[in-house]
Design a protein around this nucleic acid. Structure first.
Lengths: 343, 343
DNA sequence: CTGAAAGCGCTTACAG
DNA sequence: CTGAAAGCGCTTACAG
């Protein structure tokens, strides 16, 4: 790097005829410094083109002003739905507002999230950590809790929730409301395809679905509930099973648009009309659900707000607060797949 | 943070009965250290649970091991096509392989990219910078060049290309090939809707399109070329103009799937068949183009490889190399929108 | 309101 | 092959 001379507090101090301590205090806006001195020092900083070295500051203060973001490793998680980029955007927004930098996890498939977390913490690279995926194995949460390092979770765990700072939707209510809605419009046999059943989010949605069935006086049937992966294939596979059932379900709730897409595809192949023969409702409100030929009713979980909220609860965590939770409202977008031909 | 005692080189040194210098050399794998000493020190590090402080190391070495990533500010750029997350994934992959951490820009709408860049550089937070969007105003490139700070560009500028480390597709050839293909399948009037005409990528694609027309003995007509924004509306607007033209074009090349989507929508509304009446080909190979009811022929620019490549050329830049360029191959996925009913 | 001094935790010529 | 010493650039009790 040419054309750039390193200028330090000492250079500024010398030019201003004060001590480095004073320059430092001017930098950090210490109110004890007289206006006169402050002006003088500031003039000198400008004259020299001084800019504080963040690394040195971090070392001296044992605070980095940086938040570590642990992204999911698996490729699928990053692409198949818009959650990741939207949530990240929310995190960026939140971090900007709070004045934090963002350090991204660069974990390789094999090293794993925990390794990255340890590296961030023990290398003193960050002041706090955001776990973007509740899929993140519980060992990460365990570790973070064991060292009491500030962190925030997007999503929920079933364990420790009361002591963890996290941000989530009310997935129970969302599924409940969606199921009730399908019942309201006259659907009697409502099937469901969920994602990985070990995930908290899946479990909560199933709970909400069951509760709504009961309240609607519709029996819950094991044979109408499927769980699988977050992909088109899962939707295709269970969709075709559902299509062949006798009597056939007249509604289907799916926990991700891509799964829904697979189901819709197979229904169409089998000449089953949506929504006439079967209504379809989904989650995540992705491009697919909006732009699909039969636009699909979908729950928008507001990923950006989740991301932004995660920064807020993390900042609380950094301040020492534990157990802070933010619930982000969801929105159900009703579309043709449940509403009939009229939009 | 409880349960975590800070252990430093000095602690290790004391326990091992050596000097901190020696411990430091063991950490950095200095070959001059005897195997015996190395073993002893390593045993002590493990015993104490020692982990080097990255911040202190950065300060002492004036190298951070961190790459700054400048993301586009505008919301549209982050969502409307899969480029951003895919490229970011490539960057993550590349950075993992090269052993770098990633610092994300958290620029607010108003502060702008240049401010972030200056902050990264002058605060000594990063060893190099990746500009993710060639839309990044040239002032960033100018600044980075003026201070000769290592950086890499995803995309191209028209200026200085020979001195900048960057990674790009051959957009000229991609558009050329696509146009030739449409001509091969018998299309005679090929229209084009491009993105922002100030962008290098748009200009190169237009060049390729013109060249291919000429070589196919098809006249280039100004009235068949449109440029606008990367959104559905642009596609809808110019799509409807194209639909009304007499004689109507029998093929359309669009530089982004979302634009294509808008055009396809209006064609369908006007009962214009794809591909019978008009063939449609696009860029970016997004979910939309693949899953659309009429799957759209699209050029996959391989965003992940672009991201990964950008890390490679940046690492070269950090080593002092300038003017390194990597061309990432594209792939044309031919689909129903140009091929007829058969997939 | 300001300064001298010690410290944050590591690295690296220099000397032996 | 190893150590003593100075340094990276800032901050912060402590003292006045």
């Amino acid at each position: 790097m040419k054309n750039v001379v390193k200028v330090t507090v000492n250079d500024v101090a010398e030019l201003a005829g004060v001590s480095p301590s004073t320059v430092s205090r001017v930098i950090s806006n210490n109110p004890k410094i007289s206006q006169e001195t402050r002006d003088k020092v500031q003039k000198c900083m400008e004259e020299l083109g001084y800019y504080p070295n963040a690394i040195a500051r971090s070392l001296a203060r044992s605070m980095t002003g940086t938040i570590g973001v642990i992204m999911p490793t698996r490729k699928e998680d990053l692409f198949l739905n818009p959650f990741f980029p939207e949530a990240l955007r929310g995190i960026v927004k939140g971090a900007s507002a709070e004045g934090y930098d963002l350090l991204l996890s660069t974990n390789t498939e094999k090293s794993g999230e925990l390794t990255v977390i340890k590296n961030f913490i023990r290398g003193s690279k960050v002041d706090g950590i955001i776990l973007m995926s509740s899929k993140v194995s519980d060992e990460c949460v365990d570790y973070l809790r064991s060292v009491d390092f500030p962190f925030a979770l997007i999503g929920s765990t079933f364990r420790f929730d009361e002591k963890i700072n996290h941000v989530d939707n009310d997935n129970y209510m969302a599924a409940y409301e969606l199921t009730r809605y399908l019942s309201m419009i006259g659907r009697k046999r409502i099937a469901m395809i969920g994602g990985d059943e070990r995930l908290t989010v899946t479990q909560k949605r199933i709970e909400g679905y069951r509760k709504a069935l009961t309240e609607s006086n519709l029996p819950f049937e094991d044979s109408l509930l499927f769980t699988g992966k977050f992909d088109e294939e899962t939707g295709y596979k269970y969709g075709s099973e559902i299509a062949k059932m006798m009597p056939r379900p007249d509604a289907l709730i799916v926990t991700d648009d891509l799964i829904a897409f697979g189901a819709v595809k197979v229904f169409r192949l089998m000449n089953i009309s949506i929504p006439e023969d079967i209504a379809v409702a989904s989650f995540n409100n992705s491009v697919l659900s909006r732009y699909s030929d039969t636009p699909i009713t979908s729950v928008d979980i507001n990923a950006t707000a989740l991301g932004e909220g995660s920064v807020k609860v993390l900042v609380e965590a950094i301040k020492g607060v534990r157990g802070k939770k933010i619930i982000i409202p969801y929105t159900i977008y009703k579309r043709q797949s449940t509403e009939g031909k009229a939009p």
